[in-house]
Design a protein around this nucleic acid. Structure first.
Length: 900
RNA sequence: GCGCGCUUAGCUCAGUGGAAGAGCACUUCCUUCACACGGAAGGGGCCGCAGGUUCAAGUCCUGCAGCGCGCACCA
């Protein structure tokens, strides 16, 4: 390995290894493999979308899972692809074309021409997000990339439609649907977002008519509405049938102002007599509840707002052509002029908005295709019984609630970009109403006309887990990798996608589509706001990768993303990731600078306590990280890695190992070279394990170091020899290993005590205002015989000029000292220190010790505690009491020593 | 209205009934031969509030408050 640069430079490294992995087909999934299968299908991003922080979180997790599974020896399929995203994509292309002046509305171009533009757009922008995922390091099997409008995929969508149609689950009907007047299409209920809004309640007076339909001066019915413009389409006023106030006028009529039309007063249970005046205006064509009433009472459905959100001719001359918002003002103005506006109240209410277009939804009566959801029962059961496990599992409740309250899914969209409804209507003489629904168009196309609508995008993506694997054929891929193992997605699409995939899985494959669903949090900015294009608060992940490296972005994101909680993104997290990579880099650089054989054999007889200590810490880290993986607790895994590597390995072990490695610190000993080689062997053992533990999180730098350090050289090609990707996942050190190398609790305690002494000694220096670079003399009075190595490490880590060991040392009055299990450490300052300050410090520590003693004693004096607490808890408390008492006694001595 | 979260250090958050933790920020010292993208030592907490269960509660239970998110046809 050539000499490493002082700081890690990710850019060149990342590109080089990604090419290497691709070239060696490291991401390819082999259905013929004998290894157990592991599969994930990617939540397909919008084909014309750009990578955002949500994608980074989501796909990093998938990549971590995929890479870990490979290291666990499984045959991994991570199947990538993109979604055609009907409304979003069509809207973007429409906007662009109209900005370019090429059309005002898509009708100007016509369907064929317009679709050509969309496809051109897709060709131009469609690959961008895929390239971005590669920059992130995603190990997808790119040869299997799918698009929801691939010809094969389109056939799957059609097949699903035809089958469900033939089962009678798909039907066409005239219904009140959620209409997006901007995109000019129907939407499903899920695509409507209820937003709380400050609005008004307009109280309108409708003149009451007598039995002969004549107005009676001064008699009005007062109705309240949040949408005065809809009054132009009113067909009744409704009251509760039991409302005593209105019994007399039931069956009479009132005069609809502006339209000057008599409308009936009807009785309907739906009306809440306690709300407002107890009178409700009924607009059957523009309100879902009113629609139901319209049906019950056979009212006319007068459409006054058109599909473009403008008033129709039926709204009357004054209003026709006005946008609905303008029409509201105009209606209010007219009614005010007529003296029919009683009052306006401020009113907070919920308004349905189109999630895509961000405009208010218009309830709109139209002919649409609906799906009665299939395989509902088994889908509910699968999650309830845990055959599909949600992480965190509380989402199961949300899922269950939705699944138990299903309403038919409006699947037709009045768009052009998407899968066209595979239905033809006969236009042959005398065949009116005849329908052709099949995978192939009718043989006599001249006699038929295809339905102009396309299907909801989610009607294609709900087939994703098997349509991408060659369904409806029973392909090798399906046999090997279906059902998939894990799905990683956001809880915001639990209804849109997750629930529907489960139903589709049962319906078409007779089996769950996945075993586990991991729900990520939502990425928010520092202020907790959802990241969005319009707010401009979403950083471009590629900028971050350019600045800090992909590994840094991955590590920083994962470290701050706890299971199931939203993530407040802060660039500082990425900076932390970069710093961490740099630390890893330099730790390896340090090893490399030591020279010597790589991966020598570890000799038990030559192990220092520090060597044993770090092996124990490694063992603990392996156990913790593996356990965290099993429960999808990625942030915990990264925290453990951070702690183990930075605090335990770098801060303590490497620093201590310099007592053996660096010639100027190494006392002349016959076995100095052997000891040095042995420590290098331990370092190599630890590093080669550490790199593997890090690999799922930091794929690039770990590969660079794995190969750069030569750790691949002794491994079989398929198990790390070629790439760290296929190196085996580290296993906890087994009993034989621990026995052979003397890894036990006693060693751990001794080294911990020595490290504690180091920390305390450093504190002494600090309290004595000794500059960090000044070497000073310490005296150590050991409680037990001290091992030479420990003394050397003490000297080194205390930056001591000398460490004098004297079991009978009697320090002069006023010498500051600290105590530990191992003995007493003195800092002879010959009166240079501030005695008062030192006394203050000791007094404070003594106070702490006394309070701990009191707390512990209180517990131990409680008979209920000693009777009921489990023995090991009792024992630790007793031990703790002794420790604090010893400490307290030492502190008193030290204080006394400062007294003259 | 119903449901689900959250409330712990200045900030962002971990915390799985048995001594309150991390990162950042802050204070002081240090460019010493892996790393200043670094090292060392510090300061900083009624764990939202009130009850309860328990020998023992940040952790379990019940209220309450504040914030956030779903679901819901009160005009």
């Amino acid at each position: 390995m050539v000499e490493l640069p002082k700081a890690y430079e990710p850019q060149a490294v990342e590109a080089r290894w990604y090419d290497f992995w691709l070239k060696h087909q490291c991401f390819a999934a082999n259905p013929a493999s004998a290894k157990p299968a592991y599969a994930i299908v990617i939540p397909p991003p919008n084909v014309t979308g750009m990578l955002h922080m949500g994608h980074v979180l989501n796909n990093t997790i998938q990549d971590i899972l995929a890479r870990k599974a490979r290291m666990d020896g499984r045959e991994v399929l991570w199947l990538p692809g993109t979604d055609h995203a009907g409304i979003a994509t069509q809207a973007v292309v429409e906007k662009t074309l109209s900005q370019q002046g090429r059309m005002k509305h898509r009708d100007d171009l016509g369907r064929e021409k317009f679709l050509e533009h969309v496809w051109a757009w897709k060709e131009k922008h469609g690959g961008i997000i895929i390239q971005q995922l590669k920059k992130l390091g995603c190990s997808c099997d790119w040869a299997r990339e799918r698009f929801t409008m691939d010809p094969d995929y389109t056939r799957c969508v059609q097949k699903a439609f035809v089958e469900l149609y033939r089962k009678g689950l798909i039907y066409r009907g005239r219904r009140m649907v959620n209409w997006d007047p901007k995109a000019r299409t129907a939407l499903s209920d899920e695509e409507v977002e209820m937003l709380e809004q400050k609005g008004h309640l307009w109280h309108l007076q409708y003149p009451l008519l007598d039995e002969h339909d004549r107005p009676r001066a001064g008699e009005f019915l007062v109705v309240a509405t949040t949408r005065p413009e809809t009054m132009l389409g009113d067909e009744a006023v409704a009251v509760h049938p039991a409302d005593p106030r209105y019994q007399k006028i039931l069956g009479r009529k009132c005069l609809l102002p502006l339209q000057n039309k008599p409308i009936p007063i009807i009785a309907d249970e739906l009306v809440d007599p306690k709300f407002g005046t107890g009178c409700v205006k009924v607009t059957p064509a523009h309100d879902p509840a009113d629609y139901e009433m319209g049906l019950r009472h056979q009212l006319p459905f007068t459409v006054v707002i058109g599909p473009d959100g403008r008033m129709t001719a039926a709204a009357g001359e004054k209003f026709a052509g006005l946008d609905r918002a303008k029409a509201r003002q105009a209606v209010v103005q007219e009614l005010t002029g007529l003296g029919l506006l009683l009052k306006i109240e401020d009113y907070v209410h919920n308004v349905g908005y189109s999630q895509r277009s961000q405009v208010p939804i218009e309830p709109y009566l139209s002919e649409q295709w609906f799906l009665k959801y299939p395989s509902v029962e088994p889908s509910i059961q699968a999650v309830a019984e845990g055959r599909i496990a949600f992480h965190p599992d509380r989402w199961g409740k949300t899922y269950s609630h939705w699944m138990h309250n299903l309403r038919d899914w409006c699947i037709s969209r009045q768009l052009w970009w998407g899968h066209r409804v595979p239905v033809w209507y006969s236009r042959a003489e005398g065949q009116a109403g005849k329908i052709w629904c099949d995978l192939t168009p009718p043989p006599d196309p001249e006699n038929w006309e295809q339905d102009p609508d396309v299907l909801d995008t989610w009607f294609s993506s709900w087939l994703w887990p098997f349509a991408t694997m060659g369904w409806p054929e029973a392909t090798e891929t399906l046999k090997k990798f279906y059902p998939t193992t894990d799905l990683v997605t956001g809880p915001d699409i639990i209804f849109f996608w997750v629930a529907r995939m489960i139903m589709a899985g049962f319906e078409f494959m007779g089996e769950v589509p996945f075993r586990n669903v991991y729900f990520t949090g939502i990425i928010r900015d520092k202020q907790g706001r959802k990241m969005s294009k319009s707010l401009g608060n979403s950083p471009d992940p590629l900028d971050l990768i350019g600045k800090y490296g992909a590994d840094a972005l991955r590590f920083g994101t994962m470290r701050s993303a706890p299971l199931g909680q939203d993530v407040l993104f802060d660039e500082k997290d990425v900076e932390l990731g970069r710093n961490f990579c740099n630390k890893l880099w330099n730790a390896c650089r340090f090893r490399q600078m030591q020279g010597g054989e790589v991966q020598g054999e570890i000799q038990p007889g030559l192990l220092t306590g520090d060597d044993q200590w770090i092996l124990l810490k490694l063992d603990q880290a392996i156990r913790e990280i593996t356990a965290a993986f099993a429960e999808y607790r990625f942030n915990e895994a990264t925290q453990t890695l951070y702690r183990f590597f930075w605090s335990e390995y770098c801060d303590w072990y490497i620093e201590a190992s310099k007592a053996i490695l660096s010639p100027q610190n190494t006392p002349a000993r016959p076995d100095a070279d052997a000891r040095r080689a042995n420590t290098l062997a331990v370092i190599d053992f630890v590093l080669s394990h550490t790199l593997r533990l890090f690999h799922p999180f930091l794929p690039f730098i770990t590969e660079e170091l794995w190969q750069g350090m030569g750790y691949h050289e002794d491994m079989p090609a398929a198990q790390g020899g070629q790439t760290i990707m296929s190196a085996p996942w580290p296993q906890p050190l087994d009993g034989d290993f621990r026995g052979h190398y003397g890894l036990n609790a006693a060693v751990l305690e001794r080294v911990n005590a020595r490290n504690d002494l180091v920390s305390q000694g450093r504190n002494l220096r600090r309290e004595g205002n000794i500059p960090a670079n000044k070497k000073v003399r310490f005296v150590f009075r050991p409680a037990h015989p001290v091992q030479p190595h420990d003394a050397e490490v003490l000297k080194l880590l205390l930056n001591a000029e000398a460490l004098e060991i004297d079991p009978r040392h009697q320090p002069p009055k006023g010498t500051p000292s600290v105590q530990s299990e191992l003995g007493c450490l003195y800092l002879p300052l010959e009166g240079l220190i501030d005695v008062a300050a030192e006394k203050g410090r000791l007094a404070k520590e003594l106070e702490k010790a006394e309070s701990e003693i009191a707390k512990t004693r209180q517990k131990l004096d409680n008979p209920a505690f000693t009777a009921k607490a489990p023995p090991h808890v009792l024992q630790t408390h007793q031990q703790r009491l002794v420790e604090w008492q010893t400490r307290s006694e030492r502190l008193r001595q030290a204080l006394a020593a400062l007294e003259d």
